[in-house]
Design a protein around this nucleic acid. Sequence first.
RNA 1: GGAGGAGUGGCCGAGCGGUCGAAGGCGGCGGAUUUGAAAUCCGUUGUAGGGGCGACUCUACCGGGGGUUCGAAUCCCUCCUCCUCCGCCA
Length: 440
Amino acid sequence: MLDLRYASENLADVKAALARRGFDDVALLDRLGSLAEERREIITQVEALRQERNAASEAMAKVADKKSEEFQAKRDELRALGDEIKAGEARQAEVAEELEGILLNLPNLPHPETPNGLSEDDNVEMRVWGQKPSFDFEMRDHVEVGVGLGILDFERAAKLSGSRFVVLMGAGARLERALLQFMLDVHTTEHGYREVWPPVLVKDSAMLGTGQLPKFAKDSFRMAKEEEWEAQAEAQGHDLYLVPTAEVPLTNLHADEILAEADLPVAYTGYTACFRSEAGSYGKDTRGMIRVHQFDKVELVRFCHPDHGDRELDILTGHAESILQKLELHYRVVQLCAGDMGFAAQKSYDLEVWLPAQDTYREISSCSWFGDFQARRMKARFRPEQKGKPRLLHTLNGSGLAIGRTLVAILEQNQQADGSVSVPKALRPYMGGLERITAA
RNA sequence: GGAGGAGUGGCCGAGCGGUCGAAGGCGGCGGAUUUGAAAUCCGUUGUAGGGGCGACUCUACCGGGGGUUCGAAUCCCUCCUCCUCCGCCA
């Protein structure tokens, strides 16, 4: 969420910055400006009335005889004032609600270092790690490799849950488990993250805090108890959402909290299953386990001092990269252009792993710096050491990594002529020493 | 699901129609004492939003929302959350 004062006092800058990411609803921003002005006027007006009432009430309290004519007369006079205040408050609430609605639907402003551009074609390649593996046999994609080995089963997944699900079997299931253990171990022991195992069902307030709601409700799976479906319980706030990413529970850990500056930066890592409805992606990536409704991911989340956000983003990105490096998977890092960034991000790097069968790099981690955008939504603050008022934290997060896509990359990059797949050396201890996955 | 209890400042906790932003304690900060520390003593210490160049000042906030009243932390309604016991349950 943008700061109302900043946004209303710098409307032209905000319009220009949002235009960079393709947001061109100028009328909405103008509305924001005029509402902000009206808000101030009403506040001034209502507060003056309240001041008047407070003074009068104080005088009333000093009248000893509550039945005197003097008292009665004053009381009648104040009744009208009370009504006037009530009307002003009502208008103030209306304005506040509309402002809130606008602010919650405005994306973050791109950081000045974020390049221009409106689609992924405008992303900037920062660096490439490793080399494309070459194959002296006919290359297969992860579906052929995985199904061939009997470790991926899409047909049975469809029987259980429909399209865009996968069942992992045998060494595939173990590989998934090995990857998540490996990633958590690296981040906790080498990178200093505190491990968190959060709920995967969260309240709408958490979804609002990180920016998934209200604008992207269609991307989520929303839960209710059976009897609440009939009772339309969502109106009563009983509803829960399946997390689309561990970013939601991990970041919201510190909602409504004031951290000590000395404790910064705070770094959490956690694994969760992630659930996405993939609304609007019909027909895209329908093959295999690139885009599924349920996938596993290890997430990295950092809270830091506003002065260190930029540096923290580099640190976080490095942590995610180290996983790919240890797994010896060829990848590249791109900086997202303004139009390709997520709603809440101001600066983002994507890690894209090489998928030889698709002859392309695919996102396997997205590392973002949110500035105070999320922190303002969820009131996550810190208290500066040199006294002073609490200030908003900066938040960052990145996948470290998406486990399913890592598994896909391993199947494709490490495939052998005989259909088997070599297990990355770093993972072998987690696979009971297994060096090669062969058909069961 | 049933029956009770409770939500007050960074934390604990009093207050139960006006003098309450709210006693007291803890914690924090500043100072005194001390060679230093502990202990002790004194002072100070919420958040947000208006207005003012500023000293400053005003307004709101006692779980959320609504109501009663000239006036609500205090009374009423409602919702939420947490705790205890019973039931069910991995």
